[in-house]
Amino acid sequence: MIIGQIKEGIVIDHITAGRGMEIYKILHLDEKECVVAMIKNADSKKMEKKDIIKIGEIIDLNLDVLGYIDPGITVNIIKDGKLFKRERLKLPERVFDVIKCKNPRCITSTERELRQEFRLTDPEKRTYCCAYCDAFAK
């Protein structure tokens, strides 16, 4: 299968195989007018299998969200057909409005327009806690 190179846009590479669709949805790529290609289970020397998303336009990406979902992702910005910038993601220290606190006693369950905020407490176990009530993300 051949998918052409893009001249201007973003290549989200090294997505854990099977998670591409989740990222496609979170980035709302279905709402974009530009060319978007989702490649599943591509061969990878490093990962054996990986997913790749190619976007034919440079759009704002929330790298913290991507880093939380799949910290192994690489984001390549392409300009004039060449690699302009490469971002290797890592687990973000804080994420906003990605995880919802499940603790019914937490203030986020009642306070209007209060952003859901979680902080990284254990990078090895990828554990996040609610910034308000300290409950673990589930």
Binding site: R105, I107, D134
Partner: peptide, 27 residues
């Protein structure tokens, strides 16, 4: 003091004076 956990933290973020947590739920 508030039954919701994290409520005094929210108050301290919004208030222009210091807020002391006098007990928030089971937190």
């Amino acid at each position: 003091r508030h039954p919701k956990e994290g409520a005094p933290k929210v108050a301290d973020m919004r208030a222009s004076v210091p807020v002391i947590n006098a007990g928030d739920g089971g937190h």
